[in-house]
């Protein structure tokens, strides 16, 4: 009886951080399989048309791709630092790091916008007359390029929305040094976006 009473007096809000993290990881695995399927298609067609894939990849700008890699890697660092800061009860620093992460994510998308615009201006987009006049391998390469970097870009945009919501929650104090699992889980999502780019970059931009 006394034990029960004590429990009601202290009654902490029930929270299962390990459980929520587990849910997040399960979601990340569905994402992994989604992109995995696309990487599989890429792999099979690359083995079928190795030379045409190389010719097609020549058109891509390695500098822009490398710059975007650096941007994403750095944003992964800042989101990790934001979690570190909140663990050390430094709310201000955490807000700064998270804001920087969002800025980097937007910079990535601006870069991507100019990259895609340049390609489309040159007549390279799915179904364009210029592209349809090329070999099958080149058509497939650009089809995969647009679908895979497009889906990845969509994830970046979703990431910006999620991280912005989290930023407001930290400012309002509903995410704090005692309860930051939401920040951790959004961080995991953001790292996954980074991970996928780590593979997209060499597979599309670095074919010589």
């Amino acid at each position: 009886m006394t034990h029960n009473n004590q429990a009601t007096v202290h009654a902490p809000v029930h929270r299962d951080d390990v459980g929520s993290k587990m849910g997040m990881w399960l979601f990340l695995f569905t994402e992994l399989l989604l992109f995995g399927g696309m990487f599989l298609i890429y792999a099979v067609y690359r083995f079928q048309f190795p030379d045409q894939f190389k010719v097609a990849a020549m058109e891509l700008n390695v500098t822009v791709g490398a710059l975007n890699t650096v941007i994403l890697l750095t944003s992964s660092l800042t989101v990790a630092l934001a979690i570190g800061a909140i663990q050390k009860k430094n709310k201000f620093l955490s807000i700064i790091f998270l804001a920087v992460t969002i800025v980097f994510a937007l910079a990535f998308m601006i870069n991507k916008f100019f990259e895609w615009s340049a390609k489309i201006e040159h007549g390279i987009y799915p179904g364009s007359e210029y592209l349809l006049g090329k070999s099958n391998g080149e058509i497939l390469f650009y089809g995969l390029y647009y679908v895979m970097t497009g889906l990845h870009g969509l994830h970046v945009i979703i990431g910006v929305v999620i991280l912005s919501v989290i930023l407001v929650m930290i400012m309002k104090g509903s995410i704090n040094h005692e309860n930051y699992i939401k920040l951790e889980n959004s961080g995991l999502y953001w790292h996954l976006v980074d991970l996928i780019w780590i593979f997209l970059f060499p597979l599309f931009y670095l074919l010589q």
Binding site: S76, L77, A80, G187, L188, D194, L195, F199, P202, L207
Partner: peptide, 23 residues
Amino acid sequence: FTLFVALTIAAIKSALVINIFMH
């Protein structure tokens, strides 16, 4: 070996991100 080297480096990078950044 081009593809092999590129994928090996990507795998090392992923291992770093997963182990440290993703905790």
